[in-house]
Design a protein around this nucleic acid. Structure first.
Length: 586
RNA sequence: GGCCCCGUAGCUCAGCGGAUUAGAGCAGCAGCCUUCUAAGCUGUUGGUCGCAGGUUCGAUUCCUGCCGGGGUCGCCA
């Protein structure tokens, strides 16, 4: 039940009535007309820009249209007030009774309140994390992981059929470096003194178990083999173990992908999806042999001007055309990525979302160009970049050096502060803004900590029910009793403010889903929690506003209904964020 | 140098895809709180929305150019 879309309907009805009367011309485009909460709450409950948007085409002054429209809207259902304001806004106030019915509907819908059919079951692919399987994930990966996961939850709640996907970069030179690094650890496990790890190999301790596993599996047999023979074996073992580790780290964050797509699988097993993709694009006229100008201004030491296979990315908005083959004859990462995205399209997705770290920003245009070419304009790609995370402790940056052992892994952070603070704080910021993550602050149990503040609101709401049961054992507080409660006693401003805030939830879900912005959910929940806490505090001075009134079951039931609505929205909002809705705070 | 992101109150950040008087938290200031509903509460001072143009009846929001911060720049992924 989205109040705003309901009233958008009433505005349309009123406009059509005006057309019928000849008060405004027929054939106007209503698509830009919106009904939204006014910026300033004192203006009313709803505001519409209809008069201003239509003024030009109607060839009338905005305020003239607004007057006529407001007069019509006065007789729309449950409208208590319709005023014209400013340049031509119409501010509507609705009867309290209407808002209370929204609350009743919300309670009736339970966990499904706010669930939307916006997505119409359309398939959406969300690719996120996709960290290289060459080591543990760092905190930056964690942000993309949480963002992607929450976005997937959100889209699912908004009616899309979401697939959560991880692209394993198991084909390039980096996994060969991984294999060589693991081989060293293998020799170490067999008793060799390997000394310092050479420059260019991965020095981290996390490869020690890989070495041991290799030693157990292969004994000394790999030592005699030439590189070309042992490398694929070692590589696969190392990748598998790294992916197991990454999966465990993700599981610790309560993230589970449905599809793990291997880059190597594109060209293994006798097929070559990359070649097919290039052929596909060649037939479409987007591939040519040619030379590239060297990058302007950027010094490229070993620039080699050569003729190569290029994708006409510029035809799709990119700055330069992009090479598909390296000088050694293997495919570029981009070529494989195109094949991968083509595969997604072939699987029926028409909306693709890629979640990347900010360091991949330079890659966005070419991927958009690729999907433009591969999807023939019928497939939408939205690349969401997550900016860097700065790890802090009590206001001081945590020092991290790239040398092994001196950087803090995502897992360490999760183990130290817990899943909830990590997930909430990663989402309590727009994805494209940099983020300071303070290990000390996020576990503080105070109003200053948004994680606590929101979880606390939920726990507080639940405690009202526990206390009610104790204080008034005869009171039935099940769902049907709550739905049947007489809500008219909820007449205080602070109570109605909470009801109205709850009523915004369905609209917020749709907007957040539409723009792929899960942070809006986090901010909304914070706001909602704040509204609730403030009502609670009011009860301190004003006993008649307390939730439990032992001598007054009627008031108590109404307030329990309100709390029930609140708890429901907090719970489903937190579920989207993947944050636990606590029964009580400890 | 090219491209991308960011620039909003002293600090950290929102701002619903152009509109009514630009918001929140912290800090600051002023009160209340010797009490119970749960980790205090209430009120309040702060802003030429980086700068300059442009589009528009209307721009923090869209466009262009600067300035400042970050990222990135074939054969890494």
């Amino acid at each position: 039940m989205n109040v705003f879309s309901i009233y958008l309907g009433h505005v349309h009805d009123a406009l059509n009535a005006l057309v019928k009367e000849g008060a405004i011309p027929a054939g106007l485009d209503f698509s830009r007309v919106v009904v939204e909460p006014p910026k300033d709450e004192t203006h009313g409950d709803l505001a519409t820009n209809a008069a201003m948007v239509l003024a030009k085409d109607a060839k009338q002054k905005p305020r003239d249209i607004a007057e006529k429209l407001a007069a019509k809207l006065k007789s729309a259902p449950h409208v208590a007030k319709a005023d014209v304001a400013g340049p031509g806004f119409i501010n509507l106030a609705l009867e309290n009774g209407f808002w209370l019915e929204v609350l009743r509907a919300a309670i009736g819908a339970g966990k499904d309140f706010g669930r939307s059919g916006l997505g119409k079951g359309e398939k959406v692919n969300v690719e996120y994390v996709s960290a290289n399987p060459t080591g543990p994930m760092h905190v930056g990966h964690g942000r993309g992981a949480v963002f992607g996961d929450a976005l997937a939850n959100l889209l699912s709640f908004a009616g899309y059929a979401v697939t959560r996907e991880y692209y394993i970069n198991d084909a390039g030179a980096q996994v060969d470096v991984l294999a060589r690094s693991a081989f060293l650890r293998y020799r170490e496990a067999l008793g060799d003194d390997i000394g310092a790890i050479p420059e260019g190999l991965y020095p981290g301790d996390y490869l020690v178990p890989v070495g041991k596993a290799l030693a157990e599996k292969y004994g000394r047999t790999l030592l005699q083999k030439p590189d070309g023979d042992w490398l694929p074996l070692v590589r696969q073992t190392a990748i598998d173990m790294m992916m197991d580790m990454i999966r465990e780290d993700l599981a610790a964050l309560e993230i589970r992908h449905e599809v793990f797509f291997s880059e190597r699988s594109l060209t293994s097993g006798g097929k070559d999806k990359v070649a097919e993709t290039i052929e596909f694009l060649r037939k479409a006229g987007h591939i040519y042999e040619g030379r590239l100008p060297p990058p302007k201004g950027a010094p490229v030491e070993d620039w080699e001007d050569r003729e190569q296979t290029l994708f006409s990315a510029t035809a799709f908005g990119d700055d330069v055309d992009r090479p598909l083959m390296k000088s050694d004859g293997t495919y570029t990462y981009f070529a494989a990525d195109m094949a991968y995205h083509r595969d997604k399209i072939e699987r029926g997705f028409r909306t693709l979302i890629d979640v990347w770290g900010a360091d991949h920003g330079g890659y966005v245009k070419r991927m958009n160009a690729a999907v433009g070419a591969l999807g023939a304009g019928k497939v939408a790609l939205d690349v969401k970049l997550c900016q860097l995370v700065r790890l802090m402790r009590a206001g001081e940056p945590v020092k991290m050096s790239k040398r092994a052992g001196e950087f803090i892994t995502l897992r360490e952070v999760v183990d130290e502060v817990g899943v909830d603070p990590v997930r909430f704080m990663m989402l309590f910021r727009k994805n494209d803004a940099q983020l300071d993550f303070d290990l000390a602050k996020v576990i503080e149990q105070s109003r200053d900590n948004p994680v606590f503040y929101v979880q606390y609101a939920h726990a507080r709401g639940r405690s009202v029910f526990r206390n009610a049961k104790e204080a008034m054992p005869d009171l039935s507080t099940d769902a049907s009793a709550l739905s049947a409660a007489d809500l008219t006693v909820l007449s205080d401003e602070a109570e109605l403010a909470l009801v109205k805030k709850l009523a915004q939830w369905p609209r917020l879900v749709e907007a957040a889903a539409e723009f792929h912005e899960p942070h809006r959910v986090a901010f909304y929940l914070y706001d909602l929690a704040s509204t609730f806490h403030s009502l609670w505090n009011k009860g301190k001075d004003a006993p008649h506003l307390r939730f439990i009134m032992e001598d007054n079951p009627k008031f108590t039931m109404a307030r329990l209904s309100l709390v029930s609505g609140l708890v429901g929205v907090l719970a489903s909002g937190l579920a989207i964020l993947g944050v636990r809705a606590a029964e009580e705070m400890r």
